[in-house]
């Protein structure tokens, strides 16, 4: 089965299931998996950090920091080994090329940076990534092989 992982959601799966997120712009899709235990998850991140947000009631999986933490926690509870976990990610584009803040900082870039920082703090290897630019991406994550397939319009699929 293929399962869609919508914005601010995460899903854990085992082979032969596949997980996908459609039309990532500034969002980032982060796939984390244990190749030996054959279990993996995908999270569709919208914003960099839950710490920047005032007020409660937000889903933790909307943010890179709290979301990746929760995904890793769920994977370990489902039988993955933290030491074997690997991560791949794609997304973080700036869709409107001309629309840059004076600092050059975009939500996409900040999302990517926060994903990197969170993975590092959890000691998880980021083995491959395809981030930035100004094209939308669709990602398919194959839990069996750990392959992350990236679709961009007008281009050949890319597998990382």
């Amino acid at each position: 089965m293929r399962f869609s992982v919508d914005i601010a959601m995460m899903k854990v799966a085992r082979p032969p299931d596949q997980l996908y997120s459609l039309g990532l712009g500034s969002c980032v899709g982060v796939a984390i998996y244990d190749p030996a235990a054959k279990i993996g998850g995908l999270i569709h991140i919208l914003l960099p950090s839950i710490k920047e947000i005032e007020g409660g009631g937000h889903s933790r999986t909307k943010f890179a920091d709290s979301g990746i933490y929760d995904l890793v926690d769920t994977l370990i509870k489902s039988g993955a080994s933290r030491a074997r976990l690997k991560a791949k990610m794609a997304g973080g584009a700036a869709m409107f090329a001309a629309r840059n803040s004076p600092s050059g900082e975009t939500i996409g870039k900040r999302n990517v940076q926060s994903c990197r920082d969170t993975l590092r703090s959890l000691g998880i290897d980021l083995v491959a990534y395809d981030v930035g630019g100004n094209k939308g991406r669709t990602v398919y994550f194959d839990v069996e092989t750990g392959a992350l397939t990236i679709k961009v319009i007008d281009k050949e699929d890319k597998v990382i």
């Binding site: 039309g23 990532l24 712009g25 584009a93 409107f96 094209k135 939308g136 319009i153």
Partner: peptide, 9 residues
Amino acid sequence: DMAGAVLNI
């Protein structure tokens, strides 16, 4: 581009 990506911001 893809609708989801365009609406992302």
